[in-house]
Amino acid sequence: MTERLDLPGAEWRGVSRKYTIVEAVGLLITGIVLTVATSIPTFLTGIQWLAVIPVSLGIIFIINIALTPRRVRAIGYMLREDDLVFRRGLMFRRVVAVPYGRMQLVDINRGPLDRAVGLSELKFVTAAASTGVVIPGLPEQDAEELRDTLVALAESRRAGL
């Protein structure tokens, strides 16, 4: 397997390791719910081969949970001179660069699991819906600082649409 898509010589800032817990717990809950739901037909009808669905789902989720730490390590962002670069994904790698001046607004979201471990999610919105820069797993303090930095940077490099 060759190297993953990356920018040469980039120094990525990673997200908090605690985000692994959030991600893993989230996957665990969805996995259990889906596995239970799909195993209902097997119990009701007693047809043996229908059990293939919940079993394979369960295996997929277990693999997914096992890969969570690596996936979280793959998330990174970088504040360069003129733009914000964001990277995520193991299998499906995606690297996005957004000039600061393109910022329309910055959102900070906290889900219940995020709050439990004191993390926030920062969303950078541009006029293009497909930009999709969402940085998860930032400690609350960092997220707010990053937001203020981004807003200040965007203000100094303001551009039209």
């Binding site: 898509l5 541009t126 930009t131």
Partner: peptide, 25 residues
């Protein structure tokens, strides 16, 4: 608005990648 590069498992194996330029819808 922004620019991104993507790759999936297949593209990676072939040493290829995809480039996207994001504009308004």
């Amino acid at each position: 608005q922004s620019v991104s590069m993507n790759e999936g498992p297949l593209l990676r194996r072939m040493g290829l990648a995809e480039l996207r330029i994001h504009t308004v819808a």
